[in-house]
Nucleic acid binder design. Structure first.
Length: 206
DNA sequence: ATGACGATTTACT
DNA sequence: GTAAATCGTCATA
């Protein structure tokens, strides 16, 4: 497993969203524990023209500032009053495009992930692996990704990065409209979401 | 200062 | 399937 370098992130978001499927997201906790999951679902956000993107119309605020940073920067934001989502910034500097990581197949540290997911919920019981990281908010909770990791440089960070597996089989991809962007008018139906067709860990199929 | 709104998840009918 | 939870952010005044 080798960490992805800057050059792997400078692609356009449509290319990167597909390229990231099958890569591994790695998170090192403060106590040194290692959590990891294979990326199985992504969405591309195309920037100033994209009505679903936080950077639509070249909007630039303290919240989305990280979208304007170098490719390979993490953009973590808080939404719905209770969830975080993590993106990988790509493209060129000052071109606010990114890829949202929507689901992981958990592979390391499942016990710690379950602890994180169990916190603050009424249901107390066993959490099935497929409920650990099968959504953008879920995976951030499971991997303890919060505001403290916003603007983190994934190419140099000791806490968060992406690895390429030593051997990766060809992965069949599903493709369809993005989730939760009905407000984006003609951009709502554009097929900018991809997932690993064989995975049981995606947030939704079709 | 105020109000509307989420790149979601969960519980419940 | 539908609806509630919950609060930071941003546009407007």
């Amino acid at each position: 497993m080798t960490r992805l370098a800057r050059s792997s992130f400078t692609a356009d978001p449509v290319t990167l969203a597909q390229r990231l499927i099958g890569m591994t997201l790695v998170r090192i906790l403060d106590d040194g524990a290692r959590l990891a999951g294979v990326i199985v679902e992504t969405e591309a956000y195309l920037g100033v023209e994209d009505k679903a993107a936080h950077s639509f119309g070249a909007r630039r605020t303290p919240r989305n500032e990280a979208m304007y940073a170098r490719a390979g920067t993490a953009y973590v934001y808080f939404t719905y009053g209770m969830h975080h989502c993590v993106n990988v910034v790509c493209g060129r500097v000052n071109e606010p495009v990114a890829v949202l990581i929507r689901a992981l197949e958990p592979v390391e540290g499942l016990d710690r992930m379950a602890e994180h997911r169990a916190a603050g919920r009424s249901f107390s019981g066993v959490i099935r692996p497929r409920d650990l990281c099968s959504g953008p908010g879920k995976l951030c909770q499971a991997m303890a990704i919060g505001r403290g990791l916003n603007a983190e440089d994934l190419t140099t960070s000791a806490r968060l990065w992406i690895e390429r597996p030593s051997s990766r089989r060809q992965i069949e991809l599903g493709n369809g409209p993005r989730i939760g962007v009905a407000y984006a008018a003609e951009w709502a139906d554009r097929p900018l979401r991809w997932w690993a067709a064989c995975s049981e860990h995606v947030s939704r199929r079709g």
